[in-house]
Amino acid sequence: MTPDLSRRGLLLSSGSLAAVPLTGPTEAQSHDTMPATPMAAPTLWRFFTADQASLVAAMVDRLIPPDAEFTGAVGAGVPQFIDGQLAGAWGSGARLYRLGPFAEGTPEQGYQLPYTPAELYRTSLSLVADWVRGGYGSRFEELDPRLQDEALRSLESGEAGFSELPSDAFFETLLANTVEGFLSDPMYGGNRDMVGWRMVGFPGPYAGYVNLLDRHGLNFNRPPRGIAEALREHAQHHAPTLQR
C-alpha cells in the first residue's frame, strides 16, 4: 500500500478531526483579499442554524477563496457539504470509538476528545462566534478579510484559548472538511459544477485508461462526470417506450 507522505498527505490523510497540533508552517501567507461571495440560493440547512451557516460560509471561503477562474468554497457548495456530513452518520460519530475514559493524549495518539463531529462543530461555532466578538468587536462575517485570516490563524495555532476544547482541533476538522467538500463527488453537495475537479484536471469516477498509459505526456482534458449525475442518467434511460 502506498502512503502519501507529502506534507499535505501527512496533514490531511488522517481523515478529519485531527486533534493534533501538526507540524509545519502555521502561518498562511499571501491570502488574497477578495471578500467572501454571498450565498447564492437560499439553503434549507439540515444541521446548521442560519447564524452558524453564515459563520461557516465566511470561514471556509477564506480557506479556499474564489479567484478569477475558479470559485471558492462557498461557490463550490462546501457549507452545504459540511452541513450534510454533520447531519448524517459521520456527524453523529459513526466509525468513531466512543468509549471512555477520555484522557488527553499525545499528538501521536490522535483524536481523544469526547465530541462527535456534530458536537465538535456545535460547541466550537458558538465559541468561535463569542471569541471573535470579544476580540474584534464584531461578527466574523463582518471582519475585513485580513482580520478574518488573522482570526483563522489564531484558531489554527490554538492561540484562541477555548476552555472546552482546543481551537486547533476544530480548525483542522474544518480545514479537512473544506478540502473534502471542494474535491469530493458533487453528489455530496460540494464540488459544485465539479469546480474542484476541473481546477486540478481530475476526470472523475468514470475511469479506464489502460490504453493511454504508454502515451507519455498526453494532454488529457476530458470534462469530469459525477456519480449522481451518472445515476440519474441511468434512471432516466430506464423509461423507454414499451409496447407489449
Binding site: 477564506r62 479556499i64 480545514l175
Partner: peptide, 8 residues
C-alpha cells in the same frame, strides 16, 4: 500556505 489563495 496550508490554506487560502496560495494553497489553491
Amino acid at each position: 500556505p496550508r490554506w487560502g489563495a496560495g494553497w489553491k
